[in-house]
Amino acid sequence: MPEKIKILYVDDELNNLVGFKASFRMDYNILVAENTSQAVEILTKHPDIRIIFCDQRMPDKTGVEFFEEIRSWFPHPIRILITGYSDIEAVINAINRGHIFRYVKKPWTDADIISAIEESHKFFTANSLLAIKNEELQKAYNELDKFAYSVSHDIRGPLSGVMGAIKVVRHLDNLTEIKEMLALMENSVKKLDTFILSMHDYYTLQRGELRIKEIDLEQIVTDLRDIHQGNISANKVDFNVNINQQEPFWCDDITLRLILNNLLSNAIKYQKQENENKWIELNIEVAKGQATIYVKDNGIGIPENYLNEIFNLFFRASTQDAGSGFGLYNVKDALLKLNGGIKVSSVLGDGAVFKVTIPNK
């Protein structure tokens, strides 16, 4: 059953308050106040009040003055003035100054009040949706601003490195020195390629639709192992996998691969280079209607004060590798689309554990 619209009626005449509440209490949640001070107390206790009716001729101040006073304190409720013909100039002035939504003539009828409530409720709903959209637009604008800065910074950085190396190589004759410059150029190109792939993942998640099918976890893990085998071997990392699947698992293949790929990529990337016993564990269990995935490593770990920020767009917790700042953001975004969740635990210098849960589709 939908929640009743909460309405405040302010009038110094007790009979009017009783009559208003008796007429509309069945359809609406009616609160009443005998003066403006009491009205302010009620508004403070009930921030979900949507509509305020107030009589123009109050003993301490007029209805217009009351609405003008509370406008900055309680901007969201729709304000409706109740007034007689003799106060019509004040009403027009108030409407022109934007303090009230509309007025109801005195003595009012049930039809007048119901009409005013319906129009006010529609206006309140439209304003609320507009406020949400404005907030979303502002958030999108801020994100776009950060995105534009990051793109220009992260693309120009590797390109500048390549251009600088090219200028140096032009004046080199020593083959060893040339190879060193080529290695620097290759590293810059790899960073650029990683960034471009991360942006592709980002837009795939933002615009793509889920395509649910039965997942072959063994095949996905085999494919990911093949993708990362070069880095695994080069960094001398032991990669151990355990899959315990007790029931079929249905999910979006591309999104699941994106999640696993980013987590494994980070686990490889942030190993302690001086460690002679580097390892990564991938444990997957499918049971009771969900997949539970653990990605564990004994790498550099994450500072505790960064654990709540690592999933933010463009955030980088470490300078060990020039990441794009997209990876974990993409992981979290992908999991939102799958109605999944992720938790991380880590001790700086002692690795990290990412726990992912994804419901069976």
Rank of each mutant, 00 (worst) to 15 (best):
G98F: 10
A183I: 00
P59S: 13
N283E: 10
Y306L: 03
L282S: 01
F123K: 14
F20G: 02
R71E: 11
N312K: 13
L175M: 12
I227V: 15
I70W: 03
S160A: 13
K122M: 10
G341T: 09
A352W: 04
S86Y: 10
Q290D: 08
H171I: 05
N266R: 07
N96G: 07
G230K: 12
V32R: 07
V221C: 02
L197Y: 13
M199F: 05
S345Q: 11
A33C: 10
I342N: 06
I302T: 05
L137C: 03
H153R: 10
Q229E: 12
D252G: 03
G19T: 05
I358G: 02
D154A: 06
A352P: 02
R57S: 05
D238F: 11
V10S: 00
N134D: 03
L205R: 02
Q273D: 14
M1N: 04
G327S: 11
N312L: 14
A352M: 09
S160Q: 14
G351C: 08
D145W: 07
L224Q: 05
A291L: 15
Q56G: 03
V104K: 09
T194N: 14
L263S: 01
L210I: 10
V104M: 09
D48R: 01
W108E: 04
L313A: 09
K288C: 03
K139M: 09
L313P: 01
A165E: 12
I114C: 00
S128F: 13
V331S: 04
R207F: 12
L282W: 12
A165Y: 09
V286Q: 00
D145I: 10
G230R: 04
L307K: 08
T357H: 01
Y28L: 02
G230F: 14
E3Q: 09
N275L: 13
L210S: 07
E3D: 08
T176V: 11
K337D: 01
T83K: 01
N308P: 07
N298Y: 06
N16R: 04
I155V: 15
P2C: 04
T125N: 13
K4Q: 12
S120A: 15
L184S: 12
E285T: 15
L192W: 11
M58F: 04
N275E: 15
F20C: 02
P248F: 08
E136S: 01
A39G: 02
R207W: 02
V40Q: 06
I342E: 06
I268N: 02
F20S: 05
K133T: 12
I227L: 15
Y141P: 00
M1V: 11
G164N: 13
F123T: 01
K278C: 05
F67K: 03
D48T: 11
A39W: 06
A111V: 13
K288F: 11
D55P: 05
N127V: 02
V241N: 01
K167A: 13
A140Q: 08
E274Y: 08
S150A: 15
L197K: 13
T109G: 14
G161F: 07
Y85S: 10
K133Q: 12
R207I: 08
F74V: 06
D110G: 14
A94N: 04
K361D: 08
K213G: 09
V64S: 15
I342P: 05
N16T: 05
V91G: 11
G341S: 09
Q273L: 13
W108P: 00
D253I: 14
K337C: 02
K213E: 13
I49N: 01
N283M: 05
F314A: 01
K361A: 13
L192S: 06
S120Q: 02
